[in-house]
Amino acid sequence: MDMKIHEQSEVAAAVEEIKVHSRENKISVKDLCAYFGKTKVLKNITMDIPSKKVVAIIGPSGCGKSTFLRSINRMHEVVGGTITGSILLDGEDVMKLDPVYLRRKIGMVFQKPNPFPTMSIANNVVAGLKMNGFRNKKALKGIVEKALKQAALWDEVKDNLNDSGANISGGQQQRLCIARTIAVNPEVILMDEPASALDPISTAKVEELIFELKKDFTIIIVTHNMQQAARVSDYTAFFYMGELVEYSDTKKMFTAPDKKQTEDYITGRFG
């Protein structure tokens, strides 16, 4: 009897091991700890991000959800942070990849829209390509159109592609930033509260867009808006005080969470 249990757990571990390396999972995070100086902001996070799905990360502010996101594309180290543990992208350790190359594969959209103010709309879209020396003009033109269409912005800006990227509305700016991210043709898109600075209509547009984008990209979205998480994501992870409390199917998470803490948070009892 004892023997059997032991065997079972071994089998489970093996299955887990296979799952981690299978193509199903775009990103596998194992024992991830993140630090700012000596402060530990993420504690032993282990989770898998399935391919071409939307994973939402929720939790009260300061719970480490942004840090988690920024660890994946190694932006955490840009602000002087460090990490331990491993993050695998298609089985490759991101810490061993060239960060510049890694960030082309994992795009990022920030909380506040930040189009480059000195560039036109078109140049904003292809900034990532142009600055890396991709100069095929015909291809660039095509990419501008495609990326803007994918970001559902094309119809609004197609007549003034040469205007400044900073002169359009906040919602349009954010979609421009999404287009800019798509244009590099990444495999994963990280979104750090992409709609928190936007009005409700723009928010709706961005959410719709996320729904469209998951056909082509794996998306991880950090949000403090639970309705948004429920609307757009396939899976949801709940972070609290730097720990991953619960991670499961979004529907289950919002209807029958396993943990008391999750339930309290979702029902608005704290946070």
Partner: peptide
Amino acid sequence: DRETFEKVQDYFKKSK
């Protein structure tokens, strides 16, 4: 579309 994106991908692969 696929052609252009393949171009991009090729370019990045080479640069890597």
